[in-house]
Design a protein around this nucleic acid. Structure first.
Lengths: 162, 162
DNA sequence: GGTTTTCGGATATGATATGTCCTTAATCCC
DNA sequence: GGGATTAAGGACATATCATATCCGAAAACC
């Protein structure tokens, strides 16, 4: 059970977009260059964010992406689910139905007990991600990333932002 | 991000093994039949449990599997990790290192902030699974599964247990 | 009109999950 | 001892999905 690398990409890209001044857009090309990622494939991740209404786009030169909501209004789970999908990590195939001792046509009243426990764990995972806002990540980064790197990165970004 | 179906199989098989009387073994064949699973492939899941020392085996006719510990001493996480592996669901590829604004040879003091958050969620998932004991599952099942099906299932099992 | 961009579809490739088959060694029964 | 049954594990085939690239269309800018 492993998350797509696009999840990591999307999170880092959102952190950059969160630092963009009001009304500016950043292109896939710039985001790919900044993170050393394949532009075409990163584009798919950004499209997922767009379909989830987490980012807005505009076309043409000086086009690209910007956040559709304030960083404090976007949480990690939204970003992760936009790329990874909302499906639970455990899927119950109801193998208990194959039990030869079951009366034919017997119907379970509840979901399988095994599945309920696995789904509870899944929900704990989602809860943790739901509690972390994009603005929290930006706050941590601005504390931890050395000031000169932080500054020069955003200079680099602004030079390319339309 | 989806767990292997073997995880579901292993959990159901452990629940059955937990109901086995002291000293008896149940074969892959019986477990596969009971759950409607491909015997050869289920065997791989059971081997994983064996390598994790969660079950013990013996060969020959009347051979098979039994729990290596009491159901109250085995938790869900152990079973899940035995089959699925212990690797975290999020792998950090450190794309921040590709930032062209970084001084060459610069070394991060901490793991990436994005990864730390994703790992925290992963740990919440594991914590939930760690808190559920195999005996808890058996307790729930014995309450929820209709008494006649529960009983006939274990008659079926005992007839095949070596 | 030419350039740059997002978007979506088509396609290729690689890794992993799923599933089958076969051999070996141990155990049981006769 | 010999035959049957079992777990263990390696080899192999197939299917599904992640990763990646390419292309054409439509929109925006110059």
């Amino acid at each position: 059970m492993i998350l797509k690398s696009q999840v990591e990409w999307a999170l880092h890209c959102c952190a950059i977009l969160a630092g963009l001044p009001e009304g500016r857009y950043l292109s896939t090309k710039a985001l790919a260059e900044l993170h050393g990622l394949p532009k075409e494939y990163l584009s798919k991740a950004l499209q997922s964010l767009s379909q989830a209404s987490l980012v807005e786009t505009t076309l043409g030169p000086s086009g690209g992406y910007r956040l559709a909501q304030a960083p404090s209004e976007i949480n990690f789970l939204e970003i992760v689910e936009a790329v990874e999908g909302k499906a639970r990590s455990f899927t119950c195939t109801n193998i208990r139905e194959n039990n030869p001792c079951r009366p034919a046509g017997y119907c379970d009243s509840k979901p399988c007990a095994v599945a309920r426990i696995m789904w509870e764990a899944d929900e704990a995972w989602r809860d943790t991600l739901r509690r972390v806002r994009l603005s929290d990540l930006v706050g941590t980064l601005s504390e931890e990333v050395p000031a000169d790197i932080w500054r020069s990165t955003f200079e680099w970004v602004l030079k390319r932002a339309g």
